[in-house]
Design a protein around this nucleic acid. Sequence first.
DNA 1: CGGCGTCTTGACAAAATTCAACGCCTGTGG
DNA 2: CCACAGGCGTTGAATTTTGTCAAGACGCCG
Lengths: 271, 271
Amino acid sequence: MNMTQPLSSCSNCGLHELCIPTDLSADDLKRLDQLVYARRKLCRGEELYRAGDQFGAIYSIRSGSFKKEVALEDGRQQVIDFLMSGDVLGMDGIGTDRYSCNAVALEDSVVCVIPFVRLEAISREVRGLQHQFHRVMGREMVRHQAVKMLLGGARAGERVAAFLLTLSRRFEERGYSASEFILRMNREDIGSFLGIQLETVSRVLSQFHRDNLVAVMQKYIRILNAPGLRHVAGSMGEAQPATTAKALLAVSLPAHQDTKRAASKVSALGA
Amino acid sequence: MNMTQPLSSCSNCGLHELCIPTDLSADDLKRLDQLVYARRKLCRGEELYRAGDQFGAIYSIRSGSFKKEVALEDGRQQVIDFLMSGDVLGMDGIGTDRYSCNAVALEDSVVCVIPFVRLEAISREVRGLQHQFHRVMGREMVRHQAVKMLLGGARAGERVAAFLLTLSRRFEERGYSASEFILRMNREDIGSFLGIQLETVSRVLSQFHRDNLVAVMQKYIRILNAPGLRHVAGSMGEAQPATTAKALLAVSLPAHQDTKRAASKVSALGA
DNA sequence: CGGCGTCTTGACAAAATTCAACGCCTGTGG
DNA sequence: CCACAGGCGTTGAATTTTGTCAAGACGCCG
């Protein structure tokens, strides 16, 4: 399945805020509808683009979700991002005219195809679009930064906690439940993304479950104690505006023998 | 020291390729010179901007170097990037209208101040500038991606090796020696950036030295065996275009007792 | 109902952190 | 010009964390 449907209309797209569109005059809106060349539907596992492909368009995710990954040539893949509806895919190709990773659908998904020359042309005329596009790129960079911080400074438990909280917030932003959701990716992908082994992901989730932070049933996740999770995540928890707090906890007890650091933090909080 | 000098001229700036400017008509060049509002000189340790500051401008580094860091509120700082001449600072503020990190000069430095509204205005008129700016942002994103891969998948030795190689290449791009340079940052900053402890950085460098991969004298670095370093860095070594190779090595011997993995890889290569 | 991919859990090994001590280099002040 | 303080870098030993290997459970799809 790889069909491209012609229908397209940005002006009434539900993604508004999240995607490229923004508040514009009626006249500008007409222009905006020229942005999207087509829609494209992808089945689970299908690739939207591959590393090395000629760059030509960016894609706004209309429904579904994706992972971005880079091949390590020993066959293994390193996951570098997870994206969901409203997110923009393909900006990794802008810098070099070739995509720098593979974009793979995690479930059946639909994207809007936005030819980049067209985006540049229209954003030269429609100031609001120009600014919005820059903001989208800017936010993507900040997201990358946040992940770098996580990978650079956090233990396994903190990584997983921050990961769950980020997912939670992103689902909420899209109108879904913040406390209950289905993971679209498997443990291996999560581990790859977080820089830990899939076994470690599993262990940490089990520990969280035991501590009543989250209910875990395979891919189904229910967050039971968000403040507790944020506590475990420490500084990396939710840094949408600027920075949060880790600090205070760093002083806490040196963690007992067979219990994970995560657990000790939690018990200190009182689940 | 925090003076802002009025003088400015993009059309004859030596940074050309690296910075915003690109090949344009004489007429466009005049416009381009309006880009830079002023120059600003910073002393070592001085902050160009801080996380949370109102975003207003991006900065092109004319000379010197910077680190970007985020406060962890337990007083510790996490370094998320190192930048040098020709790089652009401040794009982290575009997404949210507030800078998301602190930019600190690692040595006495000079930056060009580019008011963002001005950049957007001129790039609406000068197509080449628009495109070039997008490419600069795009390249920054790819750089972030590469670091994420490093932090996500690499051992300490691989991280340090990749770090040295990246520095080497970036110096070379700027016309300096690729094999001999001075680190502008201390071990703690390197460790923070690479997600390892400063002691580990030191140990790895010592090991590299013993293996005759690099000569290390405090901040002075001389690369003695670049292929060997690339070998140690594995897949993360130099991925400017797309991906490289790790693969083959993953199969190698399980590393002997008191010798670092890096060392075993090297000896297998033959320094 | 069975097979298979995915997830969980345990035991052990390896890697990196932590804590601590010491040496080196720089810049300052006598 | 030398001595010394303080920051920075190096190294060692013990400990924690994570990875690795292996086995078994679970759930989903055919």
